[in-house]
Design a protein around this nucleic acid. Sequence first.
DNA 1: ATCATTTTAGAACCTGGTACTAAAACAGTA
DNA 2: TACTGTTTTAGTACCAGGTTCTAAAATGAT
Lengths: 198, 198
Amino acid sequence: MPLIERLPKKQRHQHLLKLIEENPFVTDRELTRELKVSIQTIRLDRMELGIPELRERMKQMAEHSYDQVRSLPLDEVVGEVVDLQLDKSGISIFEIREDHVFSRTHIARGHYVFAQANSLAVALINDEIALTASADIRFLRQVHLGEKCIAKAYVRSMNGHKGKAKVEVFTYVGEEMVFQGNFVIYRSTAEDIIEGGM
Amino acid sequence: MPLIERLPKKQRHQHLLKLIEENPFVTDRELTRELKVSIQTIRLDRMELGIPELRERMKQMAEHSYDQVRSLPLDEVVGEVVDLQLDKSGISIFEIREDHVFSRTHIARGHYVFAQANSLAVALINDEIALTASADIRFLRQVHLGEKCIAKAYVRSMNGHKGKAKVEVFTYVGEEMVFQGNFVIYRSTAEDIIEGGM
DNA sequence: ATCATTTTAGAACCTGGTACTAAAACAGTA
DNA sequence: TACTGTTTTAGTACCAGGTTCTAAAATGAT
């Protein structure tokens, strides 16, 4: 059992990591020329380091970037409002479809679940203008493809008839709560300018 | 030379284009099942339409996203990542268009601004799975139709190599900060189950 | 000299294709 | 009906860039 001079291998591993980080599109064969070892050694090294093959690396990058690109087309109304008592409470339903999930995992992107809650919170406010000022949100468990999110929103406070309203939203899949958020909504009857908020 | 009834082929081409656009990761074999023709026909169709093979498509996507600072010439694509240093920082640009605003006020809906920030925060995390766990967000001023939102995200902490990461996002229109958010992102290398989070 | 580790070699097999040849099925027309 | 042209299907050989497995050789430490 060699005890010293074990560096070459570790050094090569470091070098390998660096090379692949520099150029993730490098093949094993190209690496042999750089590292001066056989292709089998390269492959053993990759195994030990847990580095996937070139094609898998490319696939991961492609999926990653694809997920970014397709991540925005939210519909005008996110979720169907099935019950609405202005300034009091409301319920909306939103089914997670193919468009709303990460392709790899089939788990819903957070901003869709947020969008449902945000839309409902804004819809609840009985004023001409209602914009989200801030929010404090928590995703309690993943939501999967095909699941139906039921968001329930309650107006908690109502600073006069102008100003801010606090709305609490709970989103469920069946019995389970999957999301919870506290929204502060700016409200205004006229088109007067609000110093902040959306 | 058949002159009429030439539709089936063109129809199939349209269908093929749509299928591949919907899911660029589809293999020829999978397409045969959808289109009910032989794999050779699929391949002839791809040839005629100039659609490269799956691996080439993935490679192009991967290369495209790898190309660090891409051309600013904003695509139609909203929330385009123009700079990305994994696990460190990133920048994305999103132009507010008709679809993204309240029709009355021409003010952007909050969840679009949130979506840009959320997507960027998730994109930043260099792991197979990255889901938003919670967020604390603030809309600092309204964003109007036509304005360009530039989101800058920074990874602030990195609980080991599994677990949670904290990402801070600032969104600007010109010099003005319009949004600020603190995201907690769950991260995981494997497909192991995460108890909560999106 | 001996023994464990490390490296190399080689063969079989895999996916998701390309390139090419050729037969069959389908259509329209003379 | 027979001929012609397009379209579809089938099949083979080949490719890159690997994985998986077995096994031999080189290296180094004691």
